[in-house]
Write a protein that binds this DNA or RNA. Sequence first.
DNA 1: CTAGTTTCTGACCGGCGAGTCATTGACTCG
DNA 2: CGAGTCAATGACTCGCCGGTCAGAAACTAG
Lengths: 216, 216
Amino acid sequence: MARPANPNLQGALIEAGRLEFATKGLAEARIEDITRRAGVSKGAFYLHFESKEAMFEHIARDFVDGLLRVMNCFDSLQTLEPRELVPAILNCDDQVSEYLWEHRPALRIVMEGLPSTACSGLGDQFVGALESYMRATIVRHKETMEVFSPDTDPDVAALLLTGAIVMFCRRIVRSDDKPDFRKSSIALRKILYGGMFRPEVGRALLDALQAQEAHS
Amino acid sequence: MARPANPNLQGALIEAGRLEFATKGLAEARIEDITRRAGVSKGAFYLHFESKEAMFEHIARDFVDGLLRVMNCFDSLQTLEPRELVPAILNCDDQVSEYLWEHRPALRIVMEGLPSTACSGLGDQFVGALESYMRATIVRHKETMEVFSPDTDPDVAALLLTGAIVMFCRRIVRSDDKPDFRKSSIALRKILYGGMFRPEVGRALLDALQAQEAHS
DNA sequence: CTAGTTTCTGACCGGCGAGTCATTGACTCG
DNA sequence: CGAGTCAATGACTCGCCGGTCAGAAACTAG
């Protein structure tokens, strides 16, 4: 029973924060720049966020949660036959790439290290989450699908995959227009599958990748 | 002909700076903390460095220059027979790992992103330098050595290798005691060689890796 | 020892920006 | 319409820290 709050304010602030943090980082971003970009006064910021760091963490957490949700699509791969596998994998790759591309400012925020006390090692946490997700997925697939060659160490495979993702993220953050994710993803998987999978499975998947490559 | 300057002062400052920057980052590190750690007064800092940023850049550049120098050992691989190759490669891996381990504080500094204006994208520059170094090496080896399978794209191979290195750097920065680099390096190369090299070469190198693995 | 020179010290200054809060004014209800 | 409520404002405060510089200290030459 009084002046109602502007329902878009928090959203506008967060969007402005994403952009400011993405270009300047936590330390260099100024609250007044964020609020100016959102078209409100400085005081309004503190109606929605405890502090600059709180907003930063909010944005980062949001992004990582969303990403992990999207990445769940890899779980559905377990039930597939090898022949259906390649298109399904590439589809997952597309979804993840799309999410990353859509959320570039937040991605950029998260990719920076930040060893400060407040939001200690955000980039680290991000990469760590990716890596353990990849490892878990690989272990599960290794148990249920019999495609991995038996001496492929899930830790090492996870490291390689995560490293590749990190490099992709880097490219996404840096480039101004959308790269051809599909192409890169095929090229990468060709190398990885040749090295990680049982020879017969690897060869089959490689052929399937080749077919997809010609197709697109 | 007057009071002689303390010859260790600059070195002590740099060492202190490395440690402070490594734990707190550029923005959070305080000049007084650096000088206190070095056992000198605040003013002494400005006898040797223009500003905080200048010292930061100095430390980072030093580290990257040294790393690229160490990585030149990969150049000598071109003249080797496939049979001698694996021990030589692992030897190079050891040298690089050793350098990274020795310079952990500086590595940590460089791994953080820093989108600020002053030292824009230090981590980015570092990874970029690594990637283009890897790409150049791969291209050269591809021309002269005939081990790569013809459809291995140097860009993609460089991306994978660089990603792996970045993940290694991350592990080095995080761990308190020295990881077993040799073991990880063998496991990684097993996967990569299976996927990137001509089948006959790949198999030979894989066997050699297996032998090295048993040996250590 | 003294004068001259350079290193090193640390109290001080100034600017900057996070966070505050008295005030304004938009809105609701009766 | 007027009283009451709460969102929103932005001038202000305050602490912090990068950077300075007058002076003390350390040393040398003669």
